[in-house]
Design a binder for these strands. Structure first.
Length: 560
RNA sequence: GGCCCCAUCGUCAAGCGGUUAAGACAUCACCCUUUCACGGUGAAGUCAGCAGUUCGAAUCUGCUUGGGGUCACCA
């Protein structure tokens, strides 16, 4: 077969060569050991939590070595392409502290860097030059078979093949077409795709070292994978080889789902005479399927937390997700964090070698805990600003309420938090705040809740305590006096201090904790609130007395 | 179905041939306390199974089981 002739037949208008592009995109001038990494999302709708997980590795690796972390848009699938999705991806990367320092910088913004375009659909002439070269080298052939329509068709064909011969065909029948057949097909205007003329032997293996998985045996590739689709656009495999070569990526971090096609990618690199980059195949974030009880990949269809927007909607500080993901990456991070509570997580000496290669399970409870710790360290003023920012986006009415009571809200958030060596950790995410502190705002306070007393308490005792307290409460009290007054009142109504009570529980109506709780419930409707003295002070004497009076009135009805 | 990957408390996990098998979240108990928290102390809870190698196995090997991935002109 005259490959040069075939190449000219297939790509007669392609005049640029790989050498032209090698010259156009020369080796980067970077310090020794600098890693060039990339995030290459496909713009299909939303930004997956797993993509962020990989992006964190990319950024950590690049930053640690004074390298480059760039973003490339992999928009080669015209069918699945969603408008603005690349923009969403970039914004999410930025929001979640993994902003790239080269490449795509958002819709309508100029790209950054000398290795562009960083949008694959704008790189077609490059792919064609390399495609033509593959033909010239005798490593690619046109395939005139009917295009498969989609996932369902593929699955059907696959099942049929497995049924008929127990395996799936790897060599394509069109690889045997001679040049006359090809010319004829071309003349008839038949659409064609370019496929790799694989010469691998799947029975042979070779050694490969993955940064995460370590040294492995890989089977040689025997699949005639598609290099150029019939629409003239390359699929991932070929675009990956060409782009990561020309952009001089040093380490490709990608999901483990790519592992099975690795040897095919390697064969393409080899055919082109290019040294492949290093690879790090990351485990896939999974979770327990509630229906089956089995592990499964975090799925955008069933799991809201698969979409990074989920964390924005819930109002988690973005750092909380980063720290959680870093914890999944290197579980030692947790110890480091404990030892270095104030350092930014980016200072953590991340090690790709310490990554576990089994699939981690996504644990929202753990993020919540991390988030609580983070939020507990935010000063009240800043915290209020964060909550308002969140609410402006997701709960405008709440934002208005907060702004209307700005000073009040700030004082509320300062309780047990500001100037406290061990701040309160009651807020896990901003969307909880409204419910958590609803009793502090007229707009949300529900008086019905203030008689939810502990059922084990005697209602007459509750009534007695409340009416006594109503009479004696003074808003002027400082914290010490306030509590002494409460104690006196409690003692008068038959509530003992903790030690006395424990010695003989049946002798008393309750203990001091019970008494405090009655007051707390009568005023807030909650068993848990920040320091009650501060809360009462903030609410003001009028409101406090009114609430107690209301509780008394309701109790009275119940008792009769 | 073929190929590949994975397997330590409920979850995240240290572990690299000799450990009382760390630690964290969650759970429970107790302590502190001027209430709610915070904090502290402690408890319970793990090497998927079976063989083999070895004086000795969570660790090495094999098989079994379970789970996951993949076999697209999707990425």
């Amino acid at each position: 077969m005259d490959y040069q002739k075939l190449a000219n037949l297939l790509y007669k208008n392609v005049t640029l060569t790989p050498e032209y592009f090698y010259a156009k995109y020369p080796e980067r001038k970077l310090p020794a050991g600098a890693e060039v990494t990339r995030i290459a999302p496909s713009p299909t709708g939303f930004f997956h939590t797993g993509t962020l997980y990989g992006a964190m590795i990319d950024k950590l690796l690049a930053d640690k070595t004074n390298g480059i972390f760039y973003m490339r848009v992999e928009d080669t699938d015209q069918k699945r392409k969603v408008a603005n999705a690349a923009d969403v991806a970039f914004n999410m990367l930025t929001k979640f502290n993994t902003k790239p320092n080269e490449g795509f910088m958002g819709e309508g913004k100029p790209q950054l860097g000398d290795y562009g375009s960083y949008v694959q659909s704008e790189r077609l002439e490059i792919y064609q030059a390399f495609a033509k070269r593959m033909v010239e080298l005798g490593r690619a052939f046109p395939c005139f078979c009917k295009q498969t329509e989609g996932k369902e068709d593929v699955e059907e064909r696959r099942e049929k093949q497995i049924e008929e011969m127990g395996d799936i065909l790897s060599h394509d029948p069109c690889r045997n077409l001679d040049i006359a057949d090809i010319e004829l097909n071309l003349k008839m205007g038949k659409p064609w795709a370019l496929k790799l003329l694989s010469n691998g032997d799947p029975d042979k293996t070779f050694e490969f070292t993955d940064l995460i998985k370590g040294k492995r045996e890989l089977h040689e590739n025997a699949k005639d994978i598609v290099l150029m689709k019939s629409n003239g656009i390359p699929p991932y495999a070929f675009a990956h080889v060409v782009d990561d070569t020309l952009m001089h990526t040093t380490t490709v971090v990608r999901g483990e789902e790519w592992w099975p096609s690795l040897s095919a990618h390697l064969e393409v690199f080899d055919a082109l005479g290019i040294k492949p980059p290093k690879y790090a195949h990351t485990p896939v974030i999974s979770k327990i399927d509630e229906k089956t009880g089995n592990k499964r990949k975090l799925s955008k269809r069933y799991d809201p937390e698969a979409d990074t927007r989920y964390f924005l909607e819930k109002g988690y500080p973005t750092i909380a997700l980063n720290e959680y993901l870093l914890n999944l990456l290197n579980s030692e991070f947790e110890n480091w964090r404990k030892a270095n509570p104030t350092l930014p997580y980016t200072e953590y000496p991340f090690s790709i070698r310490k990554m576990n290669s089994s699939n981690p399970m996504f644990d929202i409870v753990k993020i919540h805990d991390i988030s609580k710790n983070i939020i507990s360290t935010i000063p009240a003023k800043q915290l209020l600003r964060n909550i308002v920012d969140w609410a402006n986006e997701y709960d405008e009415e709440f934002a208005k309420v907060l702004l209307f009571h700005q000073g009040f809200a700030e004082r509320l958030l300062a309780i047990d938090r500001e100037n406290s060596p061990r701040p309160r950790k009651d807020i896990g995410c901003y969307s909880e705040v409204k419910e958590l502190y609803s009793y502090m705002f007229d707009e949300y306070f529900d008086p019905k809740t203030i008689t939810n007393f502990d059922p084990k308490l005697n209602k007459h005792a509750v009534y007695k305590l409340l009416s006594e307290y109503y009479l004696t409460y003074s808003s002027e009290d400082n914290k010490e006096d306030w509590f002494n007054r409460l104690k006196t009142c409690a003692a008068y109504c038959g509530f003992a201090d903790m030690k006395t009570y424990k010695a003989n529980p049946t002798a008393y109506a309750g203990n001091i904790a019970d008494a405090s709780n009655i007051i707390r419930v009568a005023i807030t409707g909650r068993a848990n609130t920040p320091d009650l003295h501060s809360i009462m002070k903030l609410l003001g004497v009028y409101e406090v007395k009114q609430r107690i009076a209301y509780a008394l009135a309701t109790l009275e009805k119940e008792l009769n």
